[in-house]
């Protein structure tokens, strides 16, 4: 037990907290403060974690300090890279593209039939709330241990949220706008590309963002049911068994980074595409 470290960490946390309060109350509009406050909050969390883990001598099997995790990350980059490619690039990304693409096309197809819409949207809403992750063992049985089964899980997980959002979005254009297109004598495709898809973009991107987090979760959890000898889910479940908790945290850090970058990329594309939307105004 090293009280100095613990007290130091808590003092640092309190000081940073006070600084954050002062900054956010004094310069709430400044962009620097808006960036600085969340970052400093994150840093203090890490410092607090390190201080308590080291100071209170928490066994590293329970909670390794961040510095140890960082060391592990830098030491095992090749393994992490291999797992990242297996899980993210091969399974999650392919499943994401296929699942979202299929849902988008289906939404376009059923858009012309109000009957199908009335039928599919409630069913889609219901399925989106189900624990779809449970189909993972079935998919592993059907498509084998490699990335195909993981991509299949991701496809199913992404399909329904994306479908519901796209259908919702295609309804988003207003009667006035549709009338205007009508007076222009616009055909179906013209209406679709010039009015309805742009109007649907905020909804579509909402679906894409939801699916971006689902995709990684689906790929990782599906690996718990069987994998080739690589992949983040595989590594996590085996290293937990060996009590190498720092390696698990390293994988989690990579997964968190990948998930955040993926989400961020989709958000950036959204910002570029739907720059006209009120929620994008500063």
């Amino acid at each position: 037990m090293n009280w100095l470290l613990i007290i130091g960490a808590i003092a640092f946390w309190l000081a940073a907290w006070a600084l954050n309060i002062w900054l956010s109350n004094s310069y709430p509009k400044s962009r620097f403060v808006q960036m600085f406050v969340p970052v400093s909050f994150g840093v203090t969390l890490l410092v607090l974690w390190e201080g308590i883990a080291r100071g209170a001598n928490v066994p590293t099997v329970l909670l390794p300090p961040p510095s140890m995790i960082w060391e592990r990350i830098t030491n095992s980059l090749p393994i992490l890279q291999e797992d990242f490619i297996q899980t993210f690039v091969k399974s999650a990304l392919r499943g994401y593209v296929l699942g979202c693409g299929a849902a988008f096309l289906v939404a376009l197809a059923i858009d012309r039939s109000p009957f199908l819409q009335r039928g599919l949207v409630p069913v889609g809403n219901f399925v989106a709330a189900l624990p779809i992750i449970g189909i993972a063992p079935i998919m592993v049985m059907w498509f084998g241990f490699d990335w195909h089964s993981k991509a299949a899980v991701v496809i199913v997980m992404c399909f329904f949220p994306m479908l519901v959002n796209t259908v919702e979005g295609l309804k988003a254009s207003e009667a006035m706008q549709r009338d205007l297109m009508h007076t222009y004598a616009a055909g179906y495709w013209q209406r679709l590309f010039k009015l309805r898809l742009p109007a649907a973009a905020p909804f579509i991107f909402n679906g894409l963002k939801i699916c971006s987090t689902l995709a990684l979760i689906g790929a990782i959890v599906a690996e718990f049911f069987g994998t080739p000898l690589a992949g983040m889910g595989f590594r996590i479940s085996t290293e937990v068994g060996k009590m190498n908790i720092d390696m698990v945290w390293a994988e989690i850090a990579v997964a968190a980074l990948a998930g955040s970058v993926f989400y961020g990329t989709v958000s950036l594309i959204e910002r570029a595409v739907t720059f006209w939307h009120p929620s994008m105004r500063r």
Binding site: I220, I252, S260
Partner: peptide
């Protein structure tokens, strides 16, 4: 609390981009 709004909210959002289910076994 304004400070909490500025500091906690982005991390709450970031916490969900982490595939938390991956941590479940651990």
């Amino acid at each position: 609390n304004k400070a909490m709004d500025m500091s906690v909210m982005p991390w709450v959002i970031a916490s969900q981009t982490i595939p938390i289910l991956a941590i479940a076994p651990m």
